[in-house]
Simulated scan of single mutants.
Amino acid sequence: MASGVYVTENIDSIPRIKPNIKSSHVTQEGVATAIASIQSHFTTLDKMSDRVMRQAGIKGQPNNVYLGEIPWKADDSDWFKAHPNRSHRMRPIYSGEAVTLSKELIIPPPLENHRYEILVRQVEVGKRIRTVFCRNTKAYIPDEEEVIHAIFDIVSRSGTTGVLTFNEVEALAVRYNISLSAKPH
């Protein structure tokens, strides 16, 4: 008989369990303890992911959690440290990053005058959500919090057709600007 853990979640960090081995074999109790520890790790990550998704206003299941050092994660961290008054960012997509976003995501080659970029929402320091965005390179997109916030919300909203209009982004950005400027500083 054997025991083990089968993991279906895409998580880049699984805790290393050092069993307390006093003989040449691992006991059933030792295996059970190791499995319980790994399950506890995933439960903690699931609760954190659910909380971050709720804080971000995103409905649905979180797809991936990355705890390790990854170039795009370090880049986002550095950018948000350099821009402490921002919660949203639009940046180029890293090679291989698209496949980390969703197991269901299939990204076709971009149309002419389009490219894929990543929209990032920092929910709290060190906790960010990303989504992919195919942008028209002929359309100017100002790097302003309210504009990127509006684009993130529209792109991540369920039921979006994928086509953003200037009027839709502008209306939402204006609303965010008014609500942001109404808060005491």
Rank of each mutant, 00 (worst) to 15 (best):
L111C: 05
Q122W: 01
E112N: 14
Q122P: 04
Y116N: 13
P110D: 03
H114K: 12
H88R: 02
L111Y: 09
P110I: 05
R91A: 07
A82S: 10
A82G: 05
L105H: 04
R121S: 05
K103G: 15
G96Q: 11
A98E: 12
E104S: 14
R89W: 05
R89D: 02
R121Y: 13
R121G: 00
P84H: 07
Q122Y: 00
R86T: 02
I107V: 15
E112K: 15
N85M: 09
L101P: 02
R89P: 01
P109E: 14
S102H: 10
F80Q: 07
H88T: 05
L101S: 05
L111T: 08
G96L: 13
I93H: 01
L111R: 13
L101G: 06
E112G: 12
S95D: 14
P109K: 10
I106K: 10
L101F: 09
V99P: 03
S87W: 05
M90H: 01
K103H: 12
R121P: 00
S95H: 11
R115G: 10
E97S: 08
N113A: 14
S102A: 12
H83R: 04
R91L: 01
E117I: 01
P84V: 07
G96Y: 08
N85D: 11
A98C: 06
L119E: 02
V120D: 00
E112M: 12
T100L: 14
G96P: 11
Y116K: 03
A82Y: 00
S95T: 13
N85R: 11
N113F: 15
L101C: 06
A82C: 06
Q122V: 02
E112D: 15
